[in-house]
Amino acid sequence: MKTIVICSGGLDSVSLAHKVAAEHELALLVSFDYGQRHRKELDFAAACARRLGVPHQVIDLTEVGRHLTGSALTDDVEVPDGHYAEETMKTTVVPNRNAIMLAIAFGIAAAHKAEAVATAVHGGDHFIYPDCRPGFINAFQAMQNHALEGYADVRLYAPYVNVSKADIVADGAKHDTPFAETWSCYKGGSRHCGRCGTCVERREAFHLAGVADPTDYEDPDFWVEATGAFVAEEVK
């Protein structure tokens, strides 16, 4: 299956790229610059493409991103610390981000005669991000079937949509993903902060998967406090 992977340079999408390269035909990595707080992760996406020997395209959506205001990922809004399942993490939503990116990627796939577009959305995203849920994935596929009817038949490949990030770590390890060559932190410093939602989720995922975490965190132990507080709240 000739597949285009949407790759941010994060752990999930880089693991997906390695999975596709091992199990299908990886044709291209596509990344998006939508005016996110930092572009650091795009360098990791480029490195992934070089490692896997495929082209890498960065689509400039900065003008679009200027209008998707109110998110901690695009505006001068403080990135919250803590667990992803906390209400505060909704400040990291960029409205309609996946729908916009997927629509563009499907157009590229049709033009390149690719059979699939792969996205690394996963079960841990469901609480915060509506465009990462199975219902959205199914609806988007149905919409694209109509949009490309008679021209192309492109599948939305989302193998992680119903699994946890720990499962992604396990799958990434299976396909020799170099986890140290991925970037997750929303704050974009010289090291992973260890405190923002995506750092906490990343650290927890390695722990649950039983895989050594090679990430250099500024605060490597904060995840214990953040996940412990969430578990305690669930038990009440």
Rank of each mutant, 00 (worst) to 15 (best):
Asn162Thr: 06
Tyr160Cys: 10
Thr177Met: 07
Ser164Asp: 02
Pro178Tyr: 10
Ala85Ser: 12
Tyr160Thr: 10
Leu156Lys: 01
Cys199Gln: 10
Gln144Met: 15
Leu42Pro: 08
Leu68Met: 11
Leu52Lys: 03
Val231Asn: 00
Ser8Leu: 05
Pro159Thr: 14
Phe44Pro: 09
Lys165Asp: 11
Cys7Leu: 06
Arg97Ala: 12
His24Met: 11
Pro134Trp: 13
Glu149Gly: 09
Leu73Lys: 09
Ala232Val: 04
Thr182Trp: 06
Ala147Ser: 13
Ser184Pro: 12
Ile108Asn: 03
Glu63Val: 14
Phe230Met: 14
Val5Ala: 15
Asp60Gln: 02
Asn98Lys: 09
Val64Arg: 08
Thr69Gln: 14
Ala158Val: 06
Leu11Met: 15
Thr119Lys: 06
Leu16Asn: 05
Cys193Val: 05
Leu148Phe: 15
Val77Asn: 06
Val77His: 05
Ser164Tyr: 01
Ser164Phe: 01
Asp81Met: 01
Lys40Gly: 10
Gly82Trp: 00
Cys48Val: 05
Pro80His: 06
Asp76Gly: 00
Glu115Ile: 04
Arg203Trp: 00
Tyr34Asn: 05
Ala45Leu: 11
Gly210Lys: 09
Gln141Asn: 03
Asn162Ser: 05
Phe206Glu: 00
Ser13Phe: 10
Phe136Glu: 13
Ala118Met: 15
Arg191Thr: 11
His112Asn: 14
His83Thr: 06
Ala103Pro: 00
Ala173Met: 02
Cys132Glu: 03
Ala170Leu: 14
Thr198Arg: 05
Arg50His: 11
Cys7Ser: 11
Asn138Leu: 13
Gly135Tyr: 04
Tyr34Met: 08
Thr3Cys: 02
Val161Met: 07
Ala99Pro: 07
Ala209Gly: 00
Lys236Asp: 05
Gly65Met: 08
Val235Asp: 03
His175Arg: 12
Tyr186Lys: 07
Gly10Lys: 02
Asp60Asn: 09
Leu156Thr: 01
His83Pro: 06
Cys199Arg: 10
Ser71Ala: 07
Val5Trp: 15
Ala226Leu: 04
His207Glu: 13
Glu87His: 13
Phe32Cys: 07
Ala229Thr: 07
Ala47Gly: 13
Val58Pro: 01
Met1Ala: 14
Tyr217Thr: 09
Asp221Ile: 10
Asp76Ala: 02
Leu73Val: 10
His56Trp: 02
Glu233Pro: 02
Arg37Gln: 07
Glu86Trp: 13
Glu181Met: 14
Gly82Val: 00
Ser190Ala: 11
Leu26Gly: 09
Glu149Thr: 09
Glu78Arg: 02
Gly210His: 09
Lys165Met: 12
Thr74Met: 11
Ile59His: 12
Glu233Ile: 03
Gly53Val: 06
Phe206Arg: 01
Ala21Ser: 13
Phe179Tyr: 05
Asn138Trp: 08
Arg50Gln: 14
His146Trp: 01
Ser13Thr: 13
His112Trp: 15
Cys196His: 12
Leu29Cys: 08
Tyr217Ser: 08
Asp171Gly: 07
